[in-house]
């Protein structure tokens, strides 16, 4: 995944260079039945798949639809539930949404990555006036939580 230093080029490629997915791909998985317009609109979401945290972007917690202090069990359950509806094997999409959900899950289910993410996320949010005490109280759980 990308660091902030080249996120610009990243987004440029994704939003301007990549053509829409062809309507039907190879034989390995279920053929995609999506229109070009649908694919293009989803592609713009895909540029969010990274650990850069622009203020306007939704947090990884929001991607999974959970609270910041969610337990590992809650993270896993939320991920599986979303996978069931978004994975291209079950939904007619090109997988961008699932990639986004999995990226959020991969970060939040790893205690170390989650800690780093929380710190960075916290620093970005604080100028906007987020409560320090509420955050620190809830964020303590990950250290003792072994996800796997």
């Amino acid at each position: 995944m990308a660091c902030t230093s080249f996120s610009l080029s990243n987004q440029t490629i994704r939003s301007t260079i990549l053509p829409p997915f062809p309507a039907c791909n190879s034989t390995f998985r279920r053929p995609l039945r999506i229109s070009a317009t649908c694919a293009t609109s989803q592609r713009t979401c895909s540029s969010n798949v990274s650990t850069e945290y622009a203020p306007k972007q939704v947090s990884l917690y929001e991607v999974l639809g959970i609270q910041m202090g969610a337990s590992c069990q809650e993270i896993k359950t939320a991920y599986r539930k979303l996978a069931r509806s978004l994975h291209p094997d079950v939904a007619s999409n090109n997988g961008d949404e699932f990639i986004r959900v999995h990226a959020a899950y991969a970060t939040l289910s790893d205690p170390e990555k989650r800690a780093n993410y929380d710190i960075e996320f916290f620093h970005r949010r604080r100028p906007a006036g987020m409560s320090t005490s509420g955050y620190s109280r809830r964020s303590r759980t990950w250290e003792t939580d072994q996800c796997w």
Partner: peptide, 18 residues
């Protein structure tokens, strides 16, 4: 120069290199 190499494996396991 920054040379960006992006790889994409889509839902049908097709690999594309950009």
């Amino acid at each position: 120069p920054e040379i960006n190499v992006c790889m994409d494996i889509d839902a049908s396991n097709a690999l594309r290199v950009f």
